[in-house]
Every structure is written in structure tokens, then in C-alpha cells.
Amino acid sequence: MKLKAGLYIGIAALVIAGGALLAAEGKDAVSQAESRKQGVLEAEQKMIVNEKGPGTIVKINAAAGDSIKQGDILLKVKSAEGAEVDVQSPEDGWISRILVNSGDQVAQGMPVAVVQKNTYYADIYVQEGEIQKLEVDKSIQVRFPYLKRSAQVDGVVASIAAAPQFASLRMSRERGQADLSMFLVRIAVNTNADLLPGMTAEVDLDEIAD
């Protein structure tokens, strides 16, 4: 029994010593969790509307999944007076959805298609004590940890806004740490053939110089 008790005490001492060493270096699990911020990669989308008067859809030139360029004619609308009006893409990107069919009646301002822009972004939440590391237009590296091969792409801080509806609850309250103010940071990401909306994007704040 004494031998077993001594073994347990020795293991506990090693665990405590290892944890103290990691904490001293700032690499303990809590520190890593606080510095590594994750978000979901999203693609910006733009709703296309019929900007002219009411009319009838007479031709559809695009389908969901098609690659398009700014100025491409997506639809043709025939007005009550008989004139045909082109509905053009305002952005480069992909057709996400066509919301009308040939022969449909459309009013002015009615949505007719959704375009997925060639711009990706990820939103992360950053604590008040770390937000000074970031500023709008600052370059930042974004990792995608779950790709088969590690991917790191260039990003830029697009916006910073207060997020009063969110707070970071730290693991210990013994030191007087309670809910902290949070900021919503949007990171614009360069498009990459390996990247898809829905992937996990990660930013390590420890790698950012103040």
C-alpha cells in the first residue's frame, strides 16, 4: 500500500510540476485556448433585384453553380411596353441561386438571383485585453487546421465592433476573473482553391505583434 501511495504521489508531483512549467511559459491549455481564436469561413453573398419597372422574365442565362463576371447578363426582363431590360451581375463570383423562372412576373425591387462573391471572411470574438493587438486593415495570418495539408493564407482585419451580447467566461473565478467584454472582429481572407465556405479558420493572437 505504501508503495502504491508513493507512486500516486510521484505521478501527481510530475503533473503539477509540468503544469507549472507550461503555465510559466504561457503555453498551458487555458492560455492556448484564449490565444487561438476560431471562426467559420463564410462567402459574401449579394442579392440581385430587378431594378427597373415591372415586367416578365423572358430569358435566363445562368444557373446555380455558374461562374460569372461583373457585367454578365443573367436575366432578361420584358417590360409592359415591350422593351427588354438586361439584369447584370454586379460582382465576380458564382451563382448561388436563381429565384425566378422564365415567364414569371416580377415587380420593381423584387429579388431575382443571389450571387456568391469571390470574397471570403471569418468572424472571431476577441477579449478586451487582447483587442489592442488588432486594428482595421492590419494584415494577419489565418490557418485552416483541418485541411489534409496545413494551409495558411493572408488575411486582413476588415472591421472591429463591440459585441455586448457575448462574454468570455474564464475557467477560474478565484482570482476575481468574471465575464469579459468581447469584440467581433471580421477577417477578410484571400480566396484559395483549397478553401470552401464552412471550413474552420483559426487565428493565433500570440503570433501578432502589438
Rank of each mutant, 00 (worst) to 15 (best):
M1F: 12
K2C: 01
K4Q: 11
A5N: 15
A13M: 12
L14I: 15
I16V: 15
L22M: 15
E25M: 12
A33Y: 07
L41F: 05
K46T: 12
M47R: 10
I48H: 06
N50K: 07
G53L: 07
G53Q: 07
G53H: 04
P54A: 12
V58Q: 05
I60L: 15
A62Q: 07
A64N: 09
G65Q: 09
G65M: 07
D66S: 12
D66V: 09
S67H: 08
I68V: 15
I68L: 14
L74Y: 05
L74M: 15
L74K: 10
L74R: 06
K78G: 07
G82V: 06
E84P: 00
V85Y: 13
E91L: 11
G93A: 08
W94G: 04
I95P: 03
I98R: 07
N101Y: 02
S102V: 15
G103L: 11
G103E: 10
A107Y: 05
G109Y: 10
P111F: 05
V112S: 04
V114A: 05
V115E: 03
K117R: 12
V126M: 00
Q127D: 13
E128F: 00
K133V: 01
L134R: 02
L134D: 01
V136K: 15
D137F: 10
S139A: 14
Q141L: 06
Q141W: 03
V142H: 03
R143G: 04
F144Y: 13
F144E: 02
F144G: 02
F144V: 07
K148H: 10
R149F: 09
S150G: 11
A151Y: 06
A151H: 02
D154R: 14
V156R: 13
A162D: 08
A162L: 07
A162W: 02
P164T: 04
L169I: 15
S172M: 12
R173Q: 13
Q177C: 00
S181W: 01
S181G: 09
L184W: 01
R186I: 01
V189C: 04
L196D: 06
P197K: 03
G198Y: 09
M199A: 08
A201N: 06
A201V: 04
D204I: 03
E207S: 13
E207A: 12
A209Q: 13
